[in-house]
């Protein structure tokens, strides 16, 4: 029992690492990773929604009629997304402004709906939480890593602290749209390289 729980948790961290391995939920990955802070903030918001919706879907899995299950999942997910939206607005307003439209868009993040459908609706609540937490943390770490690379080259800082000294010319390309695609593509390539061995 404990062993399989650990398995459900860790698969999200490497074997099925959401944005890289499953290539799902790319929009926030590309859009908000201009800095480490944004990336991790987005990751935590998504993790919260993922864990809560997984839990509720799993609890209700025997009650929800199969025909309207997607509609039910969407209602559940949208509810938690709105909760996150309001709470972030009240307590971390600057971050909320930076992430902007991508907070409500967690609702259409394929990872969240995908986990509800593929995992939570078939497993018991404890496993569903482990799965949600694993996927969420994997997602957060990936966003943080991508954010670190882009912030480091694009702005010369990490978490706002300069890393290159004063005569470093920021490589602005990295924080703009094209840099996001190229950077993610190269990181994916790196993961494939490591995964081969």
């Amino acid at each position: 029992m404990a062993q399989s729980m650990v398995k459900e948790f860790t698969k999200g961290l490497w074997a099925e690492l959401p944005p890289f391995r499953l290539v799902l939920g790319l929009c926030p990955v590309l859009a908000v990773t201009k800095s480490v802070e944004n990336g991790i903030g987005m990751g935590i918001a998504t993790t919260f929604v993922l864990v809560c919706s997984n839990l509720l879907v799993s609890l209700l899995r025997n009650i929800i009629p199969a025909k309207v299950r997607i509609a039910c999942f969407i209602v559940i997910i949208a509810t938690f997304v709105t909760v996150v939206e309001l709470v972030m607005q009240a307590y971390t307003y600057p971050l909320f402004l930076k992430l902007g439209i991508f907070i409500p868009l967690i609702v259409v993040n394929c990872i969240v709906l995908g986990r509800a459908e593929a995992f939570a609706s078939k497993n018991s609540p404890i496993f569903a939480i482990a799965d949600g937490l694993g996927m969420g943390i994997g997602f957060t770490l990936s966003l943080g890593a991508l954010g670190a690379v882009r912030e480091c080259f694009g702005n010369g800082t990490i978490l706002g602290n300069p890393v290159f000294g004063s005569d470093f010319q920021p490589f602005t390309f990295m924080v703009e749209a094209p840099g996001a695609f190229v950077c993610l593509g190269l990181m994916l390539c790196l993961m494939n390289l490591i995964g081969k061995k």
Binding site: I63, I64, P65, K67, V68, A71, C72, V75, I76, A78, T79, T82, V83, L86, V87
Partner: peptide, 21 residues
């Protein structure tokens, strides 16, 4: 059954959101 579940779910979601709001 479908209608009942959907209604209950919506009520729950509306209530929770109104409270948080």
């Amino acid at each position: 059954n479908m209608v009942v579940v959907l209604t209950l779910l919506s009520v729950f979601s509306g209530g929770l959101l109104a409270a948080v709001r």
